[in-house]
Every structure is written in C-alpha cells, then in structure tokens.
Nucleic acid binder design. Structure first.
Length: 443
DNA sequence: TCTGGGGTCCTAGGACCC
DNA sequence: TCTGGGGTCCTAGGACCC
C-alpha cells in the first residue's frame, strides 16, 4: 500500500471530503421498521445465544443498559421497565443493510461499505457549502425508503469523518449532521471532544495517552508523532496525521479478499459428551464450507477448538486448539467435516468426575486461497468434480428452501434437542427474505 | 574487551473495530 | 440456569539462510 507522504502543514484537507453515515442503534431500528409500536419504547437486541445486549435504543441506554451487558443480569430490569428484547436476526439486518447502501449509492460517486451499518461516501465533488444540505437530504431519503434513522459525519479524512459522525450523534442540536471540513466546526469541536472517542484509540492507547497528559482530540492532534509512534506503533502516528487532515487511510472501493474465515458458537447449554461436540463442529464446518464456496475460496488447514467457560469457576477448565491439515485446499463441506472430526478425535479426553463442561467450539481457517480448478492436480479429479457437484446441489437447495434445509447427516437432525445449538428465543421473522415470513398488512 | 551481518519468513500475541 | 462472533493490522522474536 502506498501512502501519501504526510504534509504536516496541510490543515485544510485539500478539498477532499469523506462522509461516514451509520444507522442509529441499527439492529433495533431494523426491528422498529417492522413493528412501529416499538417507536419511543426501550428496545435491545441480544448477541448470539441471547447472551449480551449488543444494540440499544436511546431509551434503553437511558435506563442504564450498557453495551455487552449479559442478558441474565438485566432481565429483571428489562421486565420492570418494559424493555422490548429481541434475539439477533442477522438475515433481516443484512438485507436492511443492503437497502440502505442502495440509497447511499444514489447520493455519492463512490462508497466503501465499512460494516453492516456504516459506509463511507466520497463527497469530494460536492461543493463545500452544499455538503450539509446533501447530508440532510440523504438522511431523510434513507428514513423514508428503509425506515432507518441515521447520522452523517463529514471530514477531510476517514478519521475525521468518524469523529464528525460521533459528534452528530451525541450533540442533539446538530440534528444528525456534522461537517468537519468546515474550518469553523473543526476549530470548535476538536478541543471539546474526549480523545477516547477517536477511531482507533482503545483502552490500552487511552491509558498511555492520558499518562502523557492528553485529554481532548486537539491535544492528540498537536502531539509530536514520533514519541506516539514509539508508544502506539505506526497506527498511533497515522491517527495524528489523519486528525490534522492528512489522509493516510484511502477509501477502499473494492471489497478486499478476505484473509481468514471462522465459524464459532457458544453452546445453547453446556456440552459434556463427545457426540454433541462432534455434531456441533460438523455444523460449524458445514457453515464454513458454505461461506468459502460463496466467495470461491478454499483452505488446506483447519483449526478446530473447543473449551470450557471461565465463568464456570467451580468446574475444571480445559481449552483445546488443534490444526488439521487437508490433503489439498478445499471448500467441500464433507472434507471440512472430516477434518473437524479428526481434530476432535485427536484431542477428546474421556470425561472424569467432575466432567469438563464445554461452553464453546469452532472452526477457523487462515491463509485462504482462491480455488481454481485448473491449478489442481489431476489425481483425484473425479472425486473433486463429484464433490463440487454435490456441494452445488446442496447450496442450491439451501438457497431455495432456506439454510439448513439440507445438511450432511453428520450434522444431525436433532439439533434442538441436543443442547448445543445456539439459542434465539426471541427472534423476529425474516420479514424481507423468507416468503413465509412476510409481514401481513390488513387494510 | 573481542564473539559477523544482514536478510526473509513465520507465529504468537496485542490492540482495536463493529 | 444464563456472559457473542468475526474480522484486521501491527510488532517482536525465533528459525533459518547465505
């Protein structure tokens, strides 16, 4: 990656303008889109396995519910305060995300989809005095077409756009838009925002910066980059340049090829028997195969892991992680399942008394490679072709009838009874992607 | 006392993000 | 009873090589 040479005297940003738009309490807003009665009520969405709160509306935040709060600790509060609680419905959120991005594309020459609820828009060709107006129009359009409320931050660099977005979200009179390409706004806000809000400053860096006497974003911007690089690596130095308006993080218009892929889940309840563990990792390996096939990638090493929970203080702890090498790179679910089961076979230990109570398992790959048939050995070609045809048929069935309609026998049909499968006890319908779950309107 | 001097590659672990 | 999942990037240090 070539980076522009930082010019430290350049505080204007040279005319570049990047917007960061994100959905407010995105998952909660998706739920609200399909149930207008949720408007004005506290709403939270839980992580996988109904474990923790990962999205909260303003009303829920006002009740003191924190990001990552375990649900079992706030359940009574939620009942008492009438908080509406949902399991996560990633199928719905993914589809709503695609809809918001379709709207964004109508407003900007180029966009980078950064996460499920955030995108960067290139507004460089929008006149400086028209940017806020455009942002307001964008917000209104997204709201009208998808139901999702958003905030927009604009800045000469990505880091400043992120910061502007934070300001837009937290300062009510700004009405959801903040433009730090405006020199007055830039001069006004940086000295008033805590340095911990800067993108890329986490707990560890914050502690170091506070020890250096840094309090506001402006304090960090005005630091000598060299000692900061010593303490926080090149990442810290880059942040300083970005805060000065010198771009170090280019817009990534093309989605990069992923480097690794993982499928990991906590069990719905603790697992002590080998059969359940084998079934769980088989299901994870199946899902891994689906993800890899969708992107034309393969792998020749699979890491299989399982472990007990550190929260089970009164029980023995065990953590296992083992790498299984495949004969050649593959994305065939049956090959991946075989590898995962081999990983279990290598590492399983008979239970004693007290037993190990396993809480989570998964399969992980790194070093993904594009899977191109012509580059592969002729030996085994027939097996591979048959395997590929089988996987294509399986993917087609699952695309048509819903994921899990057809699964390898090893994954089993009794998943809900065996206790390992993930809990989603409060999940809403997949309104936009399953014909049988369409919302019903009565006129 | 002095003990060669670079390179590259890989891995583990830290930090951070949503 | 009950505590998420999936990524990226960076660095230090060891192995190995000539």
């Amino acid at each position: 990656m070539t980076q522009p040479k930082p010019r430290l005297d350049d505080k204007s940003g040279g005319g570049r303008a990047i917007a960061l738009i994100d959905g407010n309490s995105f998952y909660c807003s998706c739920e609200r889109t399909f149930d207008p009665k949720l408007a004005g009520l506290p709403v939270i969405v839980l992580s996988n396995n109904d474990g923790c709160a990962i999205a909260r509306t303003a009303e829920a935040k006002a009740l003191g519910i924190k990001m990552g709060d375990p649900y079992f600790k706030i359940r009574d509060l939620c009942r008492a305060q009438g908080v509406r609680v949902f399991s996560s419905n990633y199928t719905l959120y993914g589809d709503m995300s695609a809809r918001t991005n379709a709207v964004y594309r109508g407003f900007a020459s180029a966009i980078e989809i950064y996460s499920i609820d955030e995108s960067f828009l290139d507004l460089t060709d929008v006149r400086p005095d028209r940017r806020v107006e455009l942002a307001r129009d964008l917000r209104a359009t997204v709201r009208a077409w998808t139901g999702i409320p958003t905030c927009v931050g604009i800045g000469p660099t990505k880091t400043l756009a992120k910061l502007a977005n934070h300001i837009a979200k937290s300062i009510a009179p700004l009405d959801g838009v903040c433009d730090l390409t405006d020199p007055d706004a830039y001069a006004h806000w940086l000295g008033r925002i805590h340095v911990g809000e800067v993108w890329g400053i986490g707990r560890a860096s914050l502690a170091k910066l506070e020890a250096m006497g840094v309090d506001t974003v402006a304090d960090l911007r005005d630091l000598d980059p060299r000692p900061v690089r010593k303490a926080m690596t090149v990442v810290g130095e880059r942040i300083i340049h970005e805060l000065r308006g010198v771009s170090c993080l280019p817009l990534g218009l093309m989605p990069a090829q992923r480097k690794g892929c993982a499928v990991t889940r906590s069990f719905g309840s603790r697992v002590e028997d080998r059969a359940s563990l084998a079934q769980a990792v088989s299901a994870h390996a199946t899902r891994l195969g689906e993800k890899l096939r969708r992107e034309g990638l393969g792998t020749d090493h699979v890491t299989v892991f399982f472990h007990t929970s550190e929260h089970d203080r009164d029980h023995p702890q065990r953590s296992v992680s083992t790498v299984v090498t495949l004969p050649e790179a593959s994305n065939d679910s049956l090959v991946l399942i075989k590898a995962a089961l081999h990983g279990i076979a290598k590492t399983w230990r008979p239970q004693g008394d007290p037993p190990w109570r396993y809480s989570k398992a998964g399969v992980i790959t790194v070093d993904l490679v594009p899977l191109v048939a012509s580059q592969r050995a002729l030996i085994g070609q027939l097996d591979r072709e048959q395997g590929a045809a089988l996987m294509a048929a399986l993917d087609a069935c699952n695309a048509r009838f819903g994921r899990g309609a057809v699964v390898p026998a090893r994954v089993g049909l009794e998943r809900t009874r065996t206790g390992w499968s993930t809990k989603f006890e409060m999940r809403t319908p997949r309104y936009t992607t399953q014909i049988g779950e369409l919302p019903v309107a009565i006129a």
